[in-house]
Design a binder for these strands. Structure first.
Lengths: 216, 216
DNA sequence: GTCTATAAGCCGATAGAC
DNA sequence: GTCTATCGGCTTATAGAC
């Protein structure tokens, strides 16, 4: 039966996400992953090819939802609305898949060498599209001239700072996960920072900016 | 002679910074650190107690300069000037000690378990002081009510995104380090984001904010 | 599908010659 | 101080019984 297979794969994948999130790929032990999942170690190798494959599958579990958060990006939508939806989706992703997202952020921060070429490709394409979108808005004068990749990276890193601050005394629920208050606060702070920063300077409009802004 | 000792320690420390920055503590090999430093592996253990001690010393090499960047924080200084100096100092630190800083950021993002208690203490104290400073400004209405720790973390993470974007095609110098243009762009973007976000809303001043703002 | 018992190899750390 | 040669422990991964 394939039902039991799917279930066990899911259980191991979640355990792996947590172990990889806490210790990183190299330091995480398959023994600990198995223990956390409540299965003997060989089961991990029965359901996954090896440790690297398991790691790549953890990354895969979050890449789809991550890219989906970018679906709001369209050149002809209102920039502030797009950014608002985008940031909300990203923070919600951090709430839904905190560990897997942390693994991905850490992986990208370390060069992405363990991402499959196809995964790198999908992320890069989306990134390029989002950058092009932001650049268009900048050229039109709809948003301030902020380097698009820096902006996207800041959102990427900040959207999950809920977990990165856990080593300090913060408000946590009993099971060790940050409470909803925390997520809403992060959303509000990030929204404010990004939207304020992106507000175009009315004192120095760029070229044809005026006319196009009115069209919008 | 202690001169040769200091020199070799420094060489190994730099090599270790680079290896730890690229691979993390667990994945970095002392063999590779020795090779990068151009010394045989036992020399690493002659000059440092063990791998963990070497790692802690790498962190130590950047904690001092990191805390020094906070020297501008004083309750009675002008918030925007403090933040400007602080951000400039942080980005400059990222230029001066890119690898060691990356190790520290990664370490803190993973819970700081490998920081010595005394190192955690120093960082926490400075953090608490900076947070208190920001909170005072918020209470006085001098800056917008942005959660101080989120703001500090965003600056912390964003100030070194030069290296985190290296897996994409960016402008690098021949030796693989980002050029100065990149640093200035990061500084400008970060300054804009933070300063804009911190501008107090004149439309909704808080309580005694007016009077105190004028005093300043 | 599940699990015990073990193989094979790598890595941190050191002994000891120079 | 410097380096070769090696040990001991730990980890991934699997063989093979149930």
């Amino acid at each position: 039966m394939t039902r039991i297979r799917e279930r066990n794969r899911a259980i191991i994948l979640i355990a792996a996400s947590e172990e990889f999130a806490r210790k990183g790929f190299a330091a995480a032990r398959t023994k600990d992953i198995a223990a956390r999942a409540g299965v003997p170690k060989p089961s991990v190798y029965y359901y996954f090819e090896n440790k690297e494959s398991l790691y790549a599958d953890v990354l895969e579990s979050v890449i789809g939802p991550l890219l989906q958060a970018s679906e709001y990006f369209h050149k002809d939508c209102i920039p502030m609305q797009v950014l608002t939806c985008f940031i909300r989706a990203r923070v919600q992703l951090a709430r839904d898949l905190p560990f897997a997202l942390k693994v991905l952020v850490s992986e990208i921060m370390h060069g992405g060498e363990r991402l499959r070429p196809e995964q790198i490709d999908r992320i890069s394409r989306q990134e390029l599209y989002n950058v092009a979108c932001l650049q268009t808005w900048i050229d039109r004068g709809q948003i301030a001239p902020i380097e698009p990749r820096h902006l996207l990276f800041t959102i990427f890193a900040a959207s999950q700072n809920y977990l990165d601050l856990e080593w300090q005394v913060t408000s946590h629920t009993s099971d060790g996960l940050p409470g909803d208050v925390c997520y809403e606060a992060i959303t509000q702070n990030l929204l404010r920072m990004v939207l304020k920063a992106c507000e175009p300077d009315v004192t120095e409009p760029q070229g044809e900016a005026r006319a196009l802004t009115i069209e919008q």
